[in-house]
């Protein structure tokens, strides 16, 4: 089932890119081929390989990747989507509050999400990292690498 969903996603991707190639101009400036030629070859190959994968997901179903345990996966490994959501929130916050503050918040949140058993050294290390790492990185990038962070 998961392989079939993957195939579906690939077909949508191929369709989206192919429709864009129809808007591209033909060869210019003495070029043998236009800008659409190479991507179309790639898209054709992806489509052909997707068809093979789709057929195999029916013919050799036991080799296909199963979708059966997805619900259980989310229940057991809820920290994975939670971490992705936190990461997205962090990127959103970067532009609003700047690198140092948003990174400190993200680190504190990340530690709270992932650390399961707190001990005194772990607590001290995590708090120290959450405050010192963003400042240190900011200093290195601004003063050594000459890159101004948001």
């Amino acid at each position: 089932m998961a392989d079939r969903l993957f195939c579906l996603a690939l077909v949508v991707l191929v369709g989206a890119f192919w429709s864009q190639t129809t808007e591209l101009p033909g060869p210019t400036g003495g070029a043998a081929l236009g800008p659409a030629f190479f991507p179309r070859v790639i898209l054709g190959l992806i489509f052909g390989l997707t068809a093979i994968l789709l057929v195999r997901s029916f013919v050799a179903a036991e080799q296909a990747v199963s979708f059966a345990g997805f619900g259980r996966f989310l229940k057991v490994h809820w920290r994975v989507p939670a971490m992705v959501a936190m990461l997205a929130g962090y990127v959103g916050l970067l532009g609003l509050t700047g690198f140092v503050l948003s990174s400190t918040i993200f680190l504190l949140g990340g530690f709270a999400l992932l650390i399961r058993e707190y001990s005194k050294p772990v607590l001290i290390a995590s708090l120290a990292l959450a405050t010192l790492l963003p400042f240190t990185l900011n200093w290195v990038f601004e003063n050594v690498l000459r890159t101004v962070l948001p």
Binding site: Y90, S103, L107, G110, F111, V122, F141, T147, L149
Partner: peptide
């Protein structure tokens, strides 16, 4: 548990730079 969030911050700052 301590390294993962720290490295994620590094990935963000590295790609921005």
């Amino acid at each position: 548990a301590i390294l993962v969030p720290c490295i994620l911050v590094l990935t963000a700052v590295g790609s921005f730079a």
